[in-house]
């Protein structure tokens, strides 16, 4: 029941309730990538950025393709709307590192180049952040392997 209910709340953009439903479901179905990628977005919207980063790192280590550009083509991707709210300053973060990290995560679902840029900005502000460093390496490697030309 929980995944379907989570999907309902996710479509309503009620990320708090969606997170609760997905978290319960993730205990019994941790390999459900469709659900996990939505749970990561929920974490970014419920002030659980560290959990989002941690889950994102675990997920892209297993299957990076499951995240990159995965929702953009679907009709219920909330990322661009959420990104717009942050980039225009409608949503304010306590520090720039968290803001850039959240933007890096959300852009990863939509555009890998912009995502890398934001993760790099976050890493510049906190160079010893191993989680972000690992994520950045995984994304860049994936990007280079995909034969895309990258101009940092």
């Amino acid at each position: 029941m929980n995944e379907m209910l989570g999907n309902h709340y996710f479509q309503l953009r009620n990320f708090q309730l969606a997170e609760t439903a997905f978290t319960v479901e993730s205990i019994t179905s941790p390999a459900n990538l469709k659900m996990v990628k939505k749970l990561i977005i929920c974490y970014t919207q419920t002030n659980k950025t560290k959990l989002a980063v941690s889950l994102l790192k675990d997920t892209i280590q297993k299957n990076i393709s499951s995240i990159i550009g995965s929702i953009r083509n679907e009709d219920d991707c909330p990322c661009m709307g959420l990104i717009g709210q942050i980039e225009t300053g409608f949503v304010v973060y306590p520090d720039e590192i968290e803001k850039h990290t959240v933007l890096g995560i959300l852009w990863l679902y939509c555009d890998i180049v912009t995502s890398i840029q934001y993760f790099k900005m976050g890493l510049n502000q906190e160079p010893k952040n191993e989680q972000i460093n690992s994520i950045l390496q995984l994304i860049e490697t994936h990007y280079q392997n995909s034969n895309h030309q990258f101009n940092p």
Partner: peptide, 24 residues
């Protein structure tokens, strides 16, 4: 293949979604 509420976008959708109410 379309999300139900995107198609019908009715008062029966969103918070009134009958299937969600059954789930709850």
């Amino acid at each position: 293949g379309k999300i139900c509420k995107r198609v019908f976008n009715s008062e029966c959708c969103d918070n009134n979604c009958p299937i969600a109410r059954v789930l709850i």
